[in-house]
Amino acid sequence: MGFLDHMELPVLPTDKTGEGNVIVTSLDTLFNWSRLSSLWQMSFGLACCAIEMMSTAAAHYDMMRFGVIPRPSPRQSDVIIISGTVTLKMASRVKMLYEQMADPKYVISMGNCSNCGGPYWEYGYHVLRGVDRVIPVDVYIPGCPPRPEALLEGLMKLQEKVRAQGKDIEFTE
């Protein structure tokens, strides 16, 4: 469970003397592992999807078991979930929030509205057609609104992405 599953190199056996507790791994893997298991989310709700995000955080779906803890400040958070329609008035604020977050930072675009404008795609004179016009997005979750299960799936996809981070560079060089 957890830590041992993610290690690429075997854990050396020990003889319970306390001398041989050594885990050999690359620094990248260790960093990625710790990042993906404590993705602190910025508690930031935009629209309808925010209520589903709240449902996901509440007792029934319990987002915290993935290490996702809502933080009120962008400076302390690793992932921002764009949960709802981004309007033109809000877009500059979303961008500013994203810029305030410390690296490494990830973006989940939750719901059709923030993916592409959703149902407001055609006549929405005040709707930004896709949050990716202002900030880069890591994971897109479709749905209007996505079910809590879909949000959890999106989070796990993001964890996979974080786990593979830096790996391709390591192998190509």
Binding site: T85, K89, Y123, H126
Partner: peptide
């Protein structure tokens, strides 16, 4: 107005049943 999603404009451009999702 940070969530102004133009409901009234959509309603003018869609038929009566199509307004329901909005």
């Amino acid at each position: 107005g940070y969530l102004h999603r133009c409901f009234e404009k959509h309603a003018e451009n869609l038929t009566y049943p199509q307004v329901l999702p909005y």
